[in-house]
Design a protein around this nucleic acid. Structure first.
Length: 834
DNA sequence: TTGTGCTATAAGTCTTTGTCGTGG
DNA sequence: CCCACGACTTTGACTTATAGCACA
């Protein structure tokens, strides 16, 4: 099975668009596979690169060796990936398998493309190939490559996709369970004595026992399934199979073993169905009763496993973790109008991405590795004063065993990281009900902000489907309840929220001290960081290995005076540092150096840290008489608005200081931070700080100056444009004249004469004094700004003549460095001597 | 099996206020 | 001569988190 899905993924990876379009019309599982395949394609690209890096040292081996080497690191890398905490389970294994194949291909290409010069020496035109007897260095082979930031990003991405797939799958199953036909079928299977359960007004978990045992006895979990069946079909066929095969029951022992090996998935679905069904019947029978919901677990056989397999297909590449689905069935407690069926199907993912699938399989003794776990939750209004959702695992015939789930997953050598309840197309994370050691899994879960945002719309749906109002039970309600009733209407959902929050705040103390490192509720002094202290130092909640355990709320962050300054706070007078740190070696060295210079003995000053309770708002001197209070460097450190002395403003417009200087207004450069460049830190300035009364004046002056500057810039641009035009025209004219003069050899040649007054651009001026008067056309461009005069004249020569420049006739102007060469005909050329 | 301590590595944090040459 | 600007030495020491391993 794994191999098959692996191939499929691979093909979708290598296929191009047309294939994917084809897939898009296929089954949901195919679509899911394709989507995941695309992600894996990206993942494998990254993996390929990584591999290339690993193979670099091996490029000097011959081809055979290289191919062997290519295959060898795979195993180690697979192993590594399995260890990746954020990786995935079965799908990840597939992922790795695929990457192996990809890698092989990649390296084949590499072999084709690579030049073999490193391993080949050409002697007498005959290539000599040096072959190395490669024995892999065990040290290198065993070298652990830690996952880089990029690997982690990728793992997180896969993690998220995986969760989304699981959510989608859970909703599908939930939807199937809502099918009225399936519900009706399920009800029809129920023995009559169990149907009476629907008439119970107050449901307690104990009342569920007959139903659970009936389901447990009558349904089995099948070992193989039709992976392509839809959830609806799977459910229906599960019911059908159970009906049609009473004799299979007598093959019961096998079924039991199957149960143990395959997960509880089917049960949940069936539960859902039965619950819904029972509720439906309930609603029909007696709508006005606040009722109960019952759940009957039905088909263990096909449906469950089919779901499981489908799920695995859908998640093909991303590694299906184990997935538990639970179903909560509840009844609406309010006897009012329309009773909404309050059933909740829950699905939990355990060991979600990182656990190696084979571990699970070992634990379960099944070939189905990484199977999701499913169970149901039933709302029992008689439980826990306010009523609560009760864990019901029909496959294992366990009721109210929420504390056993974590142990069960632990037996599978994985951890329970997500427990999601589904109902009414919505979903809610109820991990807190099942997780007893939150600190162990918190770091393994996806970013909570992302997860909450994904679940937010689903939570509303779930709450709408299950959140029947809890009747105000003043008769036997507690004071807390009535208080809460005063403030808002209690719903099952809100009560559950309270329950989960309470659980979150009452986690038992861990027994190993390492767990206190970053524990959200508790702390021991040993694991505080450099900038943390306990304040107040108490109460002591307990002990762990001789360490006092304090509430995490006692842990305070301490900072230096300068750091607090950035937040607009200053240390109160006469406050002693709550903690002192030894200066770093670098600072120490620097201080020693200064001590040598100044013979200062107090060179080893500790870094003094203060806590937030030792602070008061920053009290800077007020600006007086238009003078800005400055620090010892003549500037103002503007870490934030709070750091501005009262009566001053921070002006950030460009060249503000020049404006202030021109207006003779007192100002201070505003230092806004530091930047590191070339191994040093440099202060970064942005704008100036001036007294508030000058703000308007400065802004006005800045606006004027800005306008003047823009006009100046415009003028400069125009001048530059003119200059370039002149240059262009000059060169055109010159070119034309030279062409006429030398190219054609015509009896009559055209000479172009360019005279430039105040010429600084051209290095040579060609003029013909004889023809100056014959200029047929003069052009003159004047600009009033910079007195650029342009005079271009074109003259015609009537006789052919080859100029001769004699040394005697040339003259040199030392002032302008211009050398003038003259021909006897009167033609002259000026060149600039360099 | 689990916790602990150690090591190695990756990643993150904190540090924190120039000088000189060149060209306009 | 003054001023603005850019190049220059591409920090680095330290802490924290993480993973693997050996051992009790």
């Amino acid at each position: 099975m794994r191999r098959r899905s692996q191939r499929k993924v691979q093909s979708s990876v290598s296929d191009n668009e047309p294939r994917s379009q084809e897939n898009s019309e296929g089954t949901l599982a195919e679509i899911s596979r394709e989507a995941v395949g695309k992600l894996l394609q990206r993942a494998n690209k990254v993996g390929g690169k990584r591999k290339k890096m690993m193979l670099e040292p091996e490029t000097e081996q011959n081809g055979t060796h290289i191919l062997e080497q290519i295959l060898q690191p795979k195993t180690s890398e697979v192993g590594h990936n399995h260890r990746n905490p954020v990786g995935s389970t079965s799908a990840e294994e597939k992922c790795n398998n695929i990457s192996i194949d990809q890698r092989y291909l990649d390296n084949k290409e590499e072999l084709d493309d690579s030049d073999w010069e490193e391993g080949t020496i050409s002697v007498d035109d005959r290539p000599v190939t040096i072959e190395f007897d490669v024995t892999p260095d065990p040290a290198v082979k065993n070298q652990v490559r830690r996952s880089s930031a990029r690997d982690k990003d990728l793992a997180e991405l896969i993690h998220k996709v995986h969760l989304l797939c699981l959510l989608a799958r859970g909703r599908l199953i939930d939807s199937a369970c809502d099918d009225p036909l399936i519900q009706a079928s399920l009800l029809s299977l129920l023995p009559s004595h169990l149907l009476q359960l629907s008439n119970v007004t107050k449901l307690s978990s104990r009342a569920l026992h007959p139903l659970i045992s009936w389901f447990h006895d009558n349904f089995h979990v099948r070992n193989h399934t039709n992976a392509e069946a839809s959830p609806h079909f799977a459910l229906a066929s599960a019911l059908e199979t159970r009906e049609g095969s009473p004799e299979e029951k007598s093959k019961k022992g096998r079924a039991t073993s199957h149960v143990s090996e395959s997960s509880n998935l089917p049960a949940a679905e069936n539960l859902n169905d039965s619950v819904i069904k029972s509720q439906a019947s309930e609603t029909q029978d007696d709508n006005s009763k606040p009722c109960l919901s019952e759940q009957s677990c039905r088909s263990k056989r096909k449906g469950d496993l089919e779901f499981e397999m489908q799920l695995e297909m859908a998640l093909s590449a991303t590694a299906v973790g184990s997935l538990n689905s639970k179903l909560e069935s509840g009844t609406n407690a309010d006897g009012a109008n329309v009773s909404s069926p309050s059933k909740k199907m829950k699905r939990d993912t355990t060991g979600e991405s990182s656990t190696p699938p084979h571990v699970i399989s070992t634990a379960l003794g099944s070939t189905k590795v990484g199977s999701p776990l499913y169970w149901a939750e039933v709302y029992c209004s008689e439980e826990n004063l306010t009523g609560k959702w009760v864990h019901v695992d029909v496959v294992n015939s366990v009721i109210d065993g929420e504390d056993k789930v974590e142990a069960m997953t632990a037996a599978c050598k994985t951890s329970l990281r997500y427990v999601v309840a589904f109902a009414g197309q919505g979903a809610k994370d109820v991990i807190r009900r099942y997780c007893m050691k939150w600190h162990k899994i918190a770091s393994q879960r996806v970013d909570s902000i992302w997860w909450d945002s994904v679940l937010a719309p689903l939570r509303d749906l779930e709450s709408g489907a299950t959140g029947g109002e809890v009747p105000s039970r003043t008769n036997h309600g507690t004071s807390t309840q009535s208080n809460m009733n005063d403030s808002f209407v209690l719903t099952r959902s809100s009560l559950e929220d309270i329950e989960l929050e309470t659980r979150a705040l009452t986690e038992p103390l861990p027994t190993n001290q390492l767990a206190y490192k970053g524990h959200p509720l508790y702390a021991i002094e040993r694991w505080l960081t450099k900038y943390q202290v306990l304040h107040p130092k108490g109460p002591i909640l307990g002990f762990c290995k001789g360490h006092h355990v304090y509430p995490r709320t006692c842990v305070q962050t301490v900072k230096t005076k300068e750091r607090w300054l950035r937040e607009g706070m200053q240390v109160k007078a006469n406050e002693l540092p709550v903690k002192e740190l030894k200066p770093s070696a670098k600072t120490q060295k620097l201080q020693d150096f200064e001590a040598d210079d100044y013979e200062c003995t107090d060179s080893k000053e500790n870094i003094k840290l203060y806590g937030s309770w030792q602070l008061e708002p920053l009290n800077l001197p007020h600006a007086m008489n238009g003078i800005v209070p400055k620090n010892e460097r003549g500037q103002v450190d503007v870490w934030s608005e709070k750091c501005l002395p009262p009566g001053t403003v921070h002006l950030r417009f460009p060249r503000a200081f020049s404006v202030a200087k021109r207006l003779e207004i007192d100002y201070a450069p505003a230092m806004v931070g530091f930047e590191f460049k070339n191994g040093r830190s440099y202060p970064v300035f942005d704008g100036i700080v001036v007294c508030a009364e000058f703000k308007d004046v400065l802004l006005e002056a800045f606006a004027e100056e800005e306008q003047r500057r823009q006009e100046e810039e415009k003028r400069r641009d125009e001048t530059e444009a003119l200059r370039r035009w002149y240059q262009l025209i000059s060169s055109i004219v010159t070119r034309q004249r030279l062409k006429n003069r030398y190219n054609n050899g015509l009896p009559s040649e055209i000479l172009t004469e360019v005279q430039h007054v105040n010429d600084k651009e051209s290095n040579a001026t060609v003029s013909d004094s004889n023809d100056n008067n014959q200029t047929p056309k003069n052009q003159q461009l004047n600009t009033s700004e910079n007195n650029i005069d342009l005079k271009a004249s074109i003259s015609t020569h009537t006789e052919e003549h080859e100029h001769v420049f004699l040394k005697e006739s040339q003259s040199f102007d030392e002032r302008t460095s211009l050398l003038t060469k003259r021909c006897q005909c009167g033609f002259s050329v000026q060149v600039e001597e360099l």
